[in-house]
Write a protein that binds this DNA or RNA. Structure first.
Lengths: 344, 344
DNA sequence: ATTAGCACTCGTTCTTATAGAGTGCTAACA
DNA sequence: TGTTAGCACTCTATAAGAACGAGTGCTAAT
């Protein structure tokens, strides 16, 4: 099972070449590479062994070889040399993060965009997660006699709003009183705990001060049910379609469907732990992703993980380059977010 | 140029059949239809005339005929009998609008979804336009010593927010004072006029009351620059890909690109006047839409046009059904929105 | 252990043949 | 004069066969 140096060399050249050309590679053309010093016959023997071991495969009986998933896995785990990004790439990223953008979502969205442009693959960014945010302020803006907007602002500046109706019997001054009580008691509480805290501690308090408190309370409680999902942002949704592996109408349909569904992708990306993660082909456990690899990186604010940034490309992806880019962007993103919001 | 009754009948049958089958139709199979009482030779003669007039065309020298764009146009303008929707369709729409949803955007989004599901085409919904809304309330929530969130609520319950920074030298009580002044003076003003009014009338006022008013003023003015674009919602983005006319990888790529770009589509849809509008193929002036038709309908709140709801399908679209659905949904949508928000 | 040589396999491309759907035209018919 | 039957012709789609070339696996020589 341990590969000889020569086998490793051959595997490396095959993967590198296939990533560039998308064409199966045969013993003769391999033997012409400068790093290869032995004959095509020797290569054929080694290739047969590599195939037996499952690292490469043929597309048909007498074709050249292409990397198998196991081959990509070996390549990614052992042969990946961290590629130096060129200066123009570095500069583009630096200038992105040098811009003074204040909205969290906008920064994240821009990152997705630039990532897809630089890789020519599809980028997906999750987050930032709001469920760990803390309530900064709750406000209620009446629209007319029975409708109002409830607005929630979190400590990171995220704003959620919900419209609700209430009986016309409710006294406007009661609404104001309630908002005051809620702000006093709920400021600084993590969003996920709002509802339980509301019913456990505050209901009692409200009952003492407000006449028709129960209808109002239910409206508010409903409003505080925030979306549990992080938002999903995309960059270059159609980029991946220009890859030669998607020259098949059916594959395109299945992949586009999966991308549009969002939920499958979301689940796929979300479960990845901190740092860089690489999932190759069927490792993604999703039939539409058979020919795709997904590379994810997490970004954070201070010590707290905020979200995930990912690249979706063919298994024949430029792993080295994508990883370097993801690494750079995710750390820069974390740095900017930390600077911007951590000094509370 | 005027068609005989028989020619009209033949055209109608050809279009109807092609919409169903997506296959060119020949004189022999036409002659077997029950509404056709004359022979295939007669049909051949009539077809030749219809082709000379530009209403139908051949895919190759000895193929059957398919409708041309001009043929579809004639069909749409003259032959379309308003189709009765079946009960389950009606029921689905009714139940959609019977739900008590209060958020404008959510209602609109749901409409897009149901429309794409019922037609199996792609639906696109613009709006609702916020630029004609009036300011209900402006609020500022400080996050920390130099950052705050400005929140704008409109009379229809639309909420916009923007984060901004200000010098630490600014006095918090000044901020509060300013917000009070702005609310007094700007409530009820259409969003598009906010900025000019701010500089023309209110700057003077602020100068009298607030010490470092100019830095604050600029931050606020920036915040009031709302997005001019209506939002674009989609339903069934990939539905149209399952149409047989998109069995070509290149066509798929071009169309998906155009859909993802959003801006092109937005322009295409926006310029349509009130009511139902049908644009067939090249009438859309967009190369990616060559094989597509776009049907739009506007929806409104009271007398005020709010947005547009549209269906994108192949030129070989079920015009009659789509038009009926659009008509029903757009009027129901208008009705619900009017009821919900008009009673200010 | 390495390599040259060779028979063999399979995909690609081109050609050729065939069947089938449909047309346009002509001539006969009511 | 409008309608129709008949027929030669055109073009597509499909299959089958041939030639080519890239590549393999195996054997024997180095």
């Amino acid at each position: 099972m341990l590969l000889t140096d020569r086998q490793v060399l051959i595997l490396q050249v095959i993967v590198d070449d296939f990533i560039r050309s998308a064409q199966p590679i045969g013993s003769r053309s391999l033997s012409k590479k400068e790093e290869i010093t032995f004959s095509s016959a020797t290569i054929r023997n080694e290739m047969a062994d590599l195939e037996d071991l499952g690292f490469i495969e043929k597309t048909h009986t007498s074709s050249g070889r292409i990397p198998s998933e196991k081959g990509y896995r070996y390549y990614v785990d052992n042969l990946l040399l961290p590629q130096k990004l060129n200066h123009s790439d570095m500069a583009a990223i630096k200038s992105l993060f040098a811009e003074r953008i204040y909205e969290l979502e906008k920064i994240v969205q821009k990152s997705a965009k630039i990532l897809s442009e630089m890789t020519n693959y599809t980028s997906i960014v999750l987050g930032p997660a709001v469920k760990d945010n803390r309530l900064k302020k709750l406000q209620i803006v009446p629209l007319n006699k029975d409708t109002a907007i409830a607005i929630i602002v979190t400590d990171t500046g995220h704003v959620e709003n919900r419209m609700f109706h209430f009986p016309t019997s409710v006294d406007p001054s009661d609404v104001e009183k309630m908002v005051n009580i809620l702000n006093e008691r709920l400021a600084g509480v993590p969003l996920t705990n709002l509802n339980s805290k509301l019913y456990k501690e505050i209901a009692v308090l409200l009952r003492q001060h407000i006449s028709s408190y129960d209808t109002l309370l239910n409206s508010i409680a409903d409003t505080l049910n925030l979306p549990s999902h992080e938002k999903v942002f995309f960059g270059g949704k159609t980029n991946i379609l220009s890859q030669p592996e998607f020259n098949d109408v059916d594959k395109i349909r299945r992949l586009m469907n999966m991308i549009e569904q969002e939920d499958g992708l979301y689940q796929l990306i979300r479960k990845n732990p901190a740092g860089i993660n690489i999932k190759i082909g069927t490792e993604n456990d999703n039939s539409a992703m058979e020919n795709c690899s997904l590379i994810t990186a997490t970004y954070s604010m201070g010590a707290e993980k905020l979200g995930t940034i990912a690249v979706l490309g063919p298994t024949r992806m430029e792993y080295s380059r994508v990883i370097s880019l993801l690494q750079l962007i995710s750390t820069d993103l974390s740095k900017v977010l930390t600077e911007l919001y951590q000094n509370k």
